[in-house]
Design a protein around this nucleic acid. Sequence first.
DNA 1: CTGTTAGCGCGTTCAA
DNA 2: TTGAACGCGCTAACAG
Lengths: 338, 338
Amino acid sequence: MSTIKDVARRAGVSLGTASRVLSGSTSTSPESRAKVQTAAAELGYIAHGPARSLRRSRTEVLGLLVSDIRNPFFSELAHAAESEAMKRGYAVLLANADEDEVQADEYLRIFASQRVDGLLLSPQGPVTPRLAALLASRLPVVLLNRSVEGLDAPLYATDNAQGVGLVLDWLERRGHRDVAFVGGPVTISTGAERQAAYLAGREAHGISTDDAFVDAGDFQAEGATAAMIRILDRGVLPTAVFGANGPTTLGVLHGLRERLGAEAASRIEVISFDDLEWFEFASPPITSVRNDAAAIGRLGVRGLIDLIEGREAASARIAMSLVDRSLVDRSSASRPVS
Amino acid sequence: MSTIKDVARRAGVSLGTASRVLSGSTSTSPESRAKVQTAAAELGYIAHGPARSLRRSRTEVLGLLVSDIRNPFFSELAHAAESEAMKRGYAVLLANADEDEVQADEYLRIFASQRVDGLLLSPQGPVTPRLAALLASRLPVVLLNRSVEGLDAPLYATDNAQGVGLVLDWLERRGHRDVAFVGGPVTISTGAERQAAYLAGREAHGISTDDAFVDAGDFQAEGATAAMIRILDRGVLPTAVFGANGPTTLGVLHGLRERLGAEAASRIEVISFDDLEWFEFASPPITSVRNDAAAIGRLGVRGLIDLIEGREAASARIAMSLVDRSLVDRSSASRPVS
DNA sequence: CTGTTAGCGCGTTCAA
DNA sequence: TTGAACGCGCTAACAG
């Protein structure tokens, strides 16, 4: 790989001039500009990022730490974040914490070592010492979707209360009284917020306040299946189930089938926080409130770059929208086919 | 952030000694070793990656270029790749080409600039000049899932012919004769291989060789929907449809519903290349051949690190397995519920 | 506007 | 085993 020295030599100018042309800092004469540019093109010169970073103490790399890129919510978020970052000249280092604090912490070390310019964080748990150290070093950070106590950073997140409100309205409209709720860990802000909003709103929407209908998993499919089964094993039979995120809803379906069989399960309506592309093909189709992951990713990157470049960044709550897939009225849908 | 200089000063040793202890190159006395380590721990010292990279001309960063991280196949692959890379001490820069050659090329520039140690590549199209230049500079590269002409690198990929064989066997077992095939672009090796294997095997498995049943999309849902509709609009009615990748199968379902309605669509069996977690909840359930994306990602990273460290790396084809979800025999399943 | 020079933080060489 | 010095490639400060 050729260096800027090679370019300068070939263009017949000094190293400084070549640098000025290539990074466009101060003005240069049209002639040297042309000479340097053709020389660079001929050599296929590509600036050495690490060297530039060392000198400028900025890497133009962002760190993105999510819990699991396999969760469609995060893969859509990552896609949007990465696309927005590239548009603004930043690359993205990806990290999957797998909902594991230790692993998350290890990634923070790698990010710190790579000297990322900023951090997009969907926190796994409390603020670890290493994260505290990074914050103390004034590394710009924005939070995605989840907040965490003691971390004062702009938050780009779903409007959980509003989304749950849409769910409650829909449940009431559909005439459901016996509704099961499968939540996520209350140690995660999204889990706590969604559960709190649901519990608080149940009564006003004519939904049973029997806590036998309520349980929580780990925001993954397996944990949700177990939670769904626990609910059914308490001897209650819901007419509808509310899953608190995408993987949870998948787990709910598994749990319903496992305990009730496909036939009986198909008489229970399911509504989900997070919309998945296949919900319309389930039977009955699954209604959802759509969580705009792309918007969160995009806004997060913009906010982070604002912070990096010394501007202010304001938190934002992204409103959710109902995707109503209930085609028929319940009285007929809930009767077995005869 | 503290530098190695700070560590040396605090430990009361020279900069060289501190460096030797921290990077463990040559031997050091137990005393200075201890002093340096405690000093580093006290300061929370984290080596400056770019500086280290500049000096050692290795970044310990891998570039991962996929077509779309939102495709579950790639998000699973990315998850496994990234996890394997971390285990071996490498970070991963993520790039989404969005099936766009220009964007892919731009990412190659960023990777080159960041001086990644190696490249995991799922190519979008032909070898661009920039990719050729990177290869000429002897940057280690491995190919994931897709090969490309003129690029001689280890390939970690699905065994397309074997997978299609499983599909053909299943179609024959189920007694399907009128089978629609919705493929992907033949300009992509996976699209070409799957289509070729299917067309070559049709006759021997008792499947109609009428090409009205065959069309191709773009490996995304929308393109596949259009292809499915084109097939139906030719006036043929398949009893089964084979979708050549995950998003394609989703598009197939949309196409069937749009032209035939949910009721008639539910009498058509669908089989998919790539297994998605929701296939069992479709009606009828979707059978698939499972593409082990995690294995491809893991093996790709191992192979790439082998190359980086000067060892040989051999290509591998990953065998697929059938996930048969056909529960009932076709004669009863295809009769409308009465 | 341009050439020269210093130094970013680190690993490694050379002498001791 | 250790300290001193050099240079990786680049940008920025300075002098002209």
